[in-house]
């Protein structure tokens, strides 16, 4: 039993394939992520799932229906939080919820009740009469989420939900999304932040150039594609490459980045001892646990955030 099922999904714009044969399934109540850099095809996939973009090839069902045929039916049961805020700046905060609820054909009294509950949920109860322009970035994003919940959706689509927000605003937002997850809402989200994916996703796919590179839970992906720990050493931008050559057999694997060398090893401290034993003196060193960033680096040879 799935709520979203994609098989060999393709979307081409002229010659360019934005999405190039993507397959995945999302179960009810699951929190599923698309992780990848900008331009990987995440947003295009989201638009197809959101029934606002027709696919070029492949199969797709959302809530058991074909989005190309049953767009309004599917969208009636979705909540969408787009990457670019499209709140109506000419209306006030509460009015934004009221007008949006009308698009679902809901009775006015029901919308008014829900609007008050959702403003509470979004921690905007005292801002109902404010102009949208007066809200901070984090508040706007919470209002957009509140708006997406006005129809009590079965699936919430979140496209880069915390991009552009400051750390504190991100944590508030994650907390709200976590509550939705606890209440059983299915979440489908895209992100290029590995910490966000680790916080929110039960399962995710790593996407690059319109294709899926790997799939699994964050922990399983790290286990499969990286070591337990990572040693980061810096020798100065001129000397990193030379130092890396001398460290070729330390740990399981090396990645040489322009500003540092990453040594993948299950015991980072032991690797550091080995580095100094070879007479190399790093300017700085750091031992940390592997993250999805390392998985992405391993899979594509590139960083997530360029």
């Amino acid at each position: 039993m799935t709520v979203i099922s994609a098989t060999d999904l393709v979307k081409r714009y002229g010659e360019v394939a934005a999405v190039d044969g993507v397959s995945f399934e999302v179960a009810p109540g699951e929190s599923f992520g698309l992780l990848g850099p900008n331009g990987a095809g995440k947003s295009t996939t989201m638009r197809m799932v959101g029934a606002v973009s027709t696919r070029t090839a492949g199969e797709l069902t959302v809530l058991g229906l074909d989005p190309d045929e049953f767009g309004p039916e599917i969208r009636a049961r979705l909540g969408v939080v787009p990457q670019q805020d499209n709140l109506d700046n000419e209306l006030r905060v509460r009015e934004n919820l009221l007008t949006y609820g009308r698009y679902f054909g809901l009775p006015r009294r029901l919308i008014a009740e829900r609007a008050d509950e959702l403003l509470e949920f979004a921690q905007l109860a005292d801002r109902g009469d404010a102009k949208v322009d007066e809200l901070s970035g984090g508040m706007k994003r919470r209002l957009t989420i509140a708006r997406a919940l006005i129809n009590e959706p079965r699936i919430l689509l979140l496209d880069e939900p915390t991009t552009g927000l400051d750390p504190q605003a991100r944590h508030i937002l994650w907390d709200r999304l976590f509550r939705l997850k606890e209440q059983g809402t299915t979440l489908l989200l895209t992100t290029h932040y590995m910490d966000e994916a680790e916080q929110l996703c039960d399962r995710l796919v790593v996407v690059d150039h319109g294709r899926i590179m790997a799939e699994g839970s964050p922990a399983a992906l790290i286990r499969q594609y990286s070591t337990r720990e990572v040693l980061e050493v810096r020798f100065g931008s001129e000397r990193n490459a030379a130092a890396a050559a001398a460290l070729a057999d330390v740990g399981d694997r090396l990645e040489v980045l322009p500003d540092r060398v990453l040594v993948y090893a299950d015991d980072g401290e032991a690797a550091l001892v080995e580095v100094t034993a070879r007479g190399l003196q790093p300017l700085t060193s750091l031992v940390r646990r592997s993250s999805l960033e390392d998985v992405f680096l391993r899979l594509t040879g590139r960083s997530l955030i360029e």
């Binding site: 959101g50 606002v52 767009g71 309004p72 039916e73 969208r75 009636a76 979705l78 969408v80 787009p82 670019q84 499209n86 709140l87 109506d88 700046n89 000419e90 949006y100 698009y103 679902f104 054909g105 129809n151």
Partner: peptide, 14 residues
Amino acid sequence: WNPIYIGMHATPIT
């Protein structure tokens, strides 16, 4: 500039 049409279209509105 203020893409409310895109917001409308994310709902059942065609």
